[in-house]
Design a protein around this nucleic acid. Structure first.
Lengths: 221, 221
DNA sequence: AATAATTTTTAGATTAGCCTAAAATTATTT
DNA sequence: AAATAATTTTAGGCTAATCTAAAAATTATT
């Protein structure tokens, strides 16, 4: 059984090494977990002793298979709880993260499997992130940044890069929620503002910063 | 915000003082929380500093209104989560306690209110224990021990005194679950074995130890 | 009322997780 | 390649929650 802190470290390291197979360095862990480098060094020594990661002084860390397993289980719990909070308890998508950060540490594999079943074995959480299966397999969706679309192209909003509450609220206010179809109408040459056509025929103008943080599934028509 | 340990102490003290208005002594807390008396002394000093209880050396403790409030909130959370686990996730009534012990410490009043609503504002948990309301009010039901019934009298099973898994499993096996109507048919003069008539017309024989741990709502016919 | 038994508290340690400040190592400039 | 900058580790401390063993206080017994 692992502590809350241990699970948080494993999850943070997992996310840092996810999109690059280099060793994860101390400072980046410290930043991502909002703590000090000295604390990170303490903890990675402990995790190394427990065979959850490989650690070489001054050379960063890499999760072992065991460490990766625990990290993925924690991500699975987090995303299932987020789905529960959103789908069943009707929390807004910007409200689910903080509560799920607590719920993800509840110890009971039976609980999480029953929750999974109760939710109908969802594949993605309220932000479009994939939910790892019981077996730890994560189905990678081939989503693309909305900023990659050219004028005239369409896509269905399927995820977000930025998970901050302020960004999610902004999307909500503009009707840019998961499942919505958008078409790029025009991209401002001077300021890169993007005009989007929604399926409601409504047309909205959003900044480049917004489209760079939205993931879409391309629609070929 | 209170720690898990603090909430557990408050809950334990609350339950010990619930059915007697004497001060709660150190040893009984230690026993109920499965720790040592020295640890209890340490903790009650801290809780006393935080105005959660009144403590006089060698004379036991009494919760303040604030302490009682936190304790009741924790009980409310525990019982709502038990209800969720049983009603929605279909856990057996002997399986819900341990998981709820963890879930009761999740910090979010919005969460617990939404859960309450989602469950349809239940008044009792899967063991028949009353669920405190948002306001902290606990509706006391006037249940009676099944062992108090005389031959010929009937009642509806509404709660249990013993919450142990082995006892609950035993009841389940005998069809003695919440809501079931039972009539006392005969009480053995020699060994006090009780013959119960179920509404299925089935007749079962149970020990005195069993009827002493079942609460019923008397049925006047 | 004195002694014995029990309960409670204190004293002193331990572990997990975090911190600051200083030292050690590695990376980057000039 | 030496000097400077940045990163990482170590050393030493802190707090929360626990423990054991010993001392103090209370309660029960003779």
């Amino acid at each position: 059984m692992y502590s809350f802190a241990e699970e948080n470290y494993l999850k943070a390291i997992y996310k840092l090494q996810e999109h690059s197979d280099l060793a994860v360095n101390t400072n980046s862990i410290a930043t991502s977990i909002q703590t000090k480098a000295a604390s990170v060094t303490d903890m990675i020594k402990k995790l190394s002793d427990k065979k959850l990661l490989k650690y070489e002084k001054y050379k960063g860390v890499e999760l072992t298979n065991l460490g990766k397993k625990i990290a993925i289980e924690t991500v699975r719990k987090h995303r299932l709880w987020e789905t529960f909070l959103h789908d069943k308890l009707k929390f807004a998508w910007d409200e689910v993260h903080d509560i799920a950060e607590q719920l993800e540490h509840i110890k009971s594999s039976e609980l999480i499997d029953k929750l999974d079943e109760y939710l109908g074995f969802p594949t993605h959480d309220p932000h479009g992130d994939p939910i790892p299966g019981r077996n730890g397999v994560i189905i990678q969706s081939n989503f693309v940044l909305l900023s990659e679309l050219k004028v005239g192209e369409s896509g269905v909003i399927s995820g977000v890069v930025n998970h901050s509450s302020v960004f999610l609220k902004h999307l909500e206010k503009n009707g840019l929620t998961l499942g919505k179809k958008v078409q790029v109408k025009e991209i401002g040459e001077f300021d890169q503002l993007v005009q989007l056509l929604l399926s409601t025929k409504e047309s909205i103008l959003v900044s480049n910063e917004v489209v760079k943080n939205i993931l879409v599934k391309i629609q070929y028509s």
